[in-house]
């Protein structure tokens, strides 16, 4: 089942927090779940929606959690060809986009996936791939990634889905290490300088 929610999160940090909340409150931390963020462009303002994919039926518990929030909801049950939609039309659109992206596996930024719990400390690239279920490590700036290249996870990985594969973008850091391209603390839009 795929549950997509558009709560009009203004950036990925806010969307991450929404996902933490949902996972926390519905107690699915222990169950295999894939949680993604999806950029919703067009419309009145670009923002970020989220999706949760799980074998369990989470529909009722999610509805309960978001009952008092202004969100768009798109619930796709196994075998269904279209999601069930609820909420204000402005946000339903984003939820729908997120539901489709989650179903197709073509795009999206991944916050939770089976294997994320292994993403701690410094690991050789090959071990990071097998332990964490990452399909590809992609070095930006053309940096090569060998099986024994050390990657410092910084305990914060946000791989992206690309054509059904889970790709983690990495960048070089001091000390002959690679670190994730996306770091936990990002400058805001309208940042200083």
């Amino acid at each position: 089942m795929i549950i997509a929610i558009d709560a009009d999160s203004k950036d990925t940090a806010a969307a991450d927090h929404l996902l933490y909340d949902l996972i926390d409150q519905i107690g699915i931390r222990a169950q295999p779940v894939v949680a993604l963020t999806h950029t919703v462009s067009g419309g009145d303002r670009p923002h970020v929606a989220v999706s949760l994919t799980s074998a369990a039926d989470l529909a009722d518990s999610i509805r309960e959690v978001v009952a008092d929030r202004n969100v768009g909801l798109a619930i796709t049950r196994p075998g269904a060809s279209e999601p069930e939609l609820a909420g204000p039309s402005r946000l339903v659109r984003g939820a729908y986009v997120a539901a489709v992206e989650a179903a197709l596996g073509t795009t999206g930024r991944v916050v939770r996936w089976p294997g994320h719990e292994q993403a701690h400390g410094v690991l050789p690239a090959a071990e990071l791939r097998t332990r964490c279920g990452i399909d590809d490590l992609e070095g930006i700036g053309g940096v090569p990634v060998e099986d024994d290249t050390l990657v410092d996870t910084l305990d914060f990985l946000r791989p992206v889905r690309r054509d059904g594969r889970l790709v983690l973008q990495v960048q070089p850091a001091a000390g002959d290490l690679l670190i994730p391209f996306e770091l936990q603390h990002q400058q805001k839009c309208c940042a200083d300088h």
Partner: peptide
């Protein structure tokens, strides 16, 4: 201080 990843307003 170019340390960022794409955000919601970034050109995709």
């Amino acid at each position: 201080e170019y340390v960022n990843a794409p955000g919601a307003g970034s050109y995709t």
